[in-house]
Amino acid sequence: MEFGPFLLLALMEGLVTAAVLALTASGLSLVFGIMRVVNVAHGAFFMLGAVLAWFTAQWVPGPPAVAFAVALIVCPLIVGAIAALADTAILKRLNYEPEATIVATIGLLYILEQAALSLFGPDARPVPAPFNIRLQLPWFGYSGYKLAVVAAAIIVLLGVWLILKHTRAGLVMRATQIDRDTARAFGINVDRVYAGVFAMGAGLAAIAAVLIVPIQQAHYLMGGDPLLLSFIVVIIGGLGSLRGTLVAALLIGLSDGVISTFFAPTLAKIIATLVVALVLVFRPQGLFGTRTT
């Protein structure tokens, strides 16, 4: 294939990766930023969203688009509720100690994966896309749905931004992020804020999963990769900086798409991984974070 179309394909693929990554990572970033919690189960919440989308597709009659729309609303709510429950029942009692939360969320990850394996099974199962439009470009074909995923991700992220900046809930969250004790002194129910933030973070992962599942199938081990990549994106972007997370998602998604298109794939992955590590070594606060120590 000629260079131009080749690059175009790489960029389109990168954009899809970036969009889904941005959604998943912004959920992690919220939890990270506001609660200072490393949520290892974030990938499991992502997986849960995809698995629930499959169940929804089985149960909701009518055209796939209807089931998809239902899944897009119901799955994040269910996943969010599970997350809120986990927060109140477990994380709160641990007082959000970093090491304890890591172990607890690893435990949670095992429990959720086992639940998916027992109830959903070990196979990768497809979920029909709400619509099937194939764009036939002169050089290659491309899925129209993938482009819709990018658009949907942008809309959801805009929504998150509006909530954070322009609603009372967002104000409360930001206040809690800056100083939890002062927030409490001003009558903010910090416990509820935390449960809400944890639920929202998980819900965002679930939305990302519902969007990606017509492309990638639901599978009980699918959470590993999104977790790793989201972590990288959040750190590279700078802890707790939502803007940084978005830029980093775009950067990582696009470069992943382009680099692995033009170089020996495994070697490219090695180099890309090392580059991420070195960026952090020489700029530990991330690209957009401010140095705190």
């Binding site: 294939m1 179309p5 080749f6 394909l9 790489a10 693929e13 990168g14 899809v16 990766t17 290659f140 491309y142 492309i215 990638q216 699918m222 990769d225 798409g257 692995s260 298109t261 020996a264 794939p265 495994t266 992955k269």
Partner: peptide, 19 residues
């Protein structure tokens, strides 16, 4: 065309298939 085992999406490798 060797695909890294950690990969979950593949479209970007297909242009490597010669015409």
């Amino acid at each position: 065309v060797a695909i890294p085992p950690t990969e979950t999406t593949f479209t970007r490798y297909f242009p490597k298939i010669p015409r």
